[in-house]
Design a protein around this nucleic acid. Structure first.
Length: 222
DNA sequence: TTGTGTTTTACGACCTCC
DNA sequence: GGAGGTCGTAAAACACAA
């Protein structure tokens, strides 16, 4: 252990044995309370205080709490985040700290806890947002695909309508039927059309339930 | 060793509640 | 009005890269 460590160890011991001396020895800033100054700027002397009144034997710095003290405080904080004065006094006594130190530790611990909670909440919302963006991309691409399908279908409908128009205007249905009756006619492009001998002709084609299904909107082309 | 960023301890100002 | 809370900050303590 070097000199610095010995010093630190002694200071730690003193500060923990005499917490009231420790806190009381800190000079009070601002002799008289200024009228609502929002912030004060502390000089180093606030945290570096002389021990003992007259001819104090050393300089005394702000000390970290020991691991054991922190462990006990953490346990207590785990039980309850708020600190009633009875519990504060009891903890202070058990840990050899000033009640003010315990209170300050809880204040700071609550602040850290709140920050952590905000951080977690931020992470959660960020992930949720990312998921929503991904889902939006997926839906956008699906919309695009469906639009393409719709466009193709519309073109096919137009093509079919033109064919039907041509057939109806160029040849009387009766003669067409008589000539081509009982033949399988690849008349509608990819769609094979069966023309029966019942005289129904092509005009019946679009009325058959199979063809009408989903194509009700074709009626303007008939 | 030193510069720099982070964490911990402590405090003042202000707010709320009883 | 006092006790105890939050908030914002200072400064010591600490960690760590260069």
């Amino acid at each position: 252990m070097n000199n610095q460590n010995v010093d630190d160890h002694n200071l730690l011991f003193i500060s923990q044995m005499y917490p009231s001396v420790y806190t009381a020895s800190i000079p009070q800033q601002g002799e008289s309370k200024p009228a609502r100054p929002r912030r004060r700027r502390k000089s180093k002397s606030v945290a570096v205080a002389e021990v003992g009144g007259e001819g104090g034997n050393g300089w005394f710095r702000k000390r970290k709490l020991s691991d054991e003290q922190v462990r006990m405080l953490e346990m207590s904080f785990g039980d309850e985040h708020k600190l009633e004065s009875e519990r504060k006094d009891r903890l202070a006594k058990e840990l050899g700290l000033d009640p003010r130190q315990v209170a300050v530790w809880f204040q700071n611990r609550r602040a850290r806890w709140k920050n952590k909670r905000l951080e977690d909440e931020y992470t959660r919302l960020k992930n949720a947002h990312e998921n929503v963006v991904v889902e939006k991309c997926r839906l956008d691409s699906e919309v695009l695909h469906l639009k393409e399908q719709l466009h193709d279908a519309e073109r096919e409908i137009q093509r079919l309508a033109l064919r039907v128009e041509g057939v109806l205007s160029n040849s009387p249905i009766s003669s067409s039927v008589s000539v081509e009756a009982n033949q399988t006619t690849p008349f509608f492009g990819d769609y094979e059309v069966e023309v029966g001998d019942d005289g129904g002709g092509y005009e019946n084609l679009f009325y058959s339930p199979e063809y009408i299904d989903g194509f009700e909107w074709m009626s303007p082309f008939m």
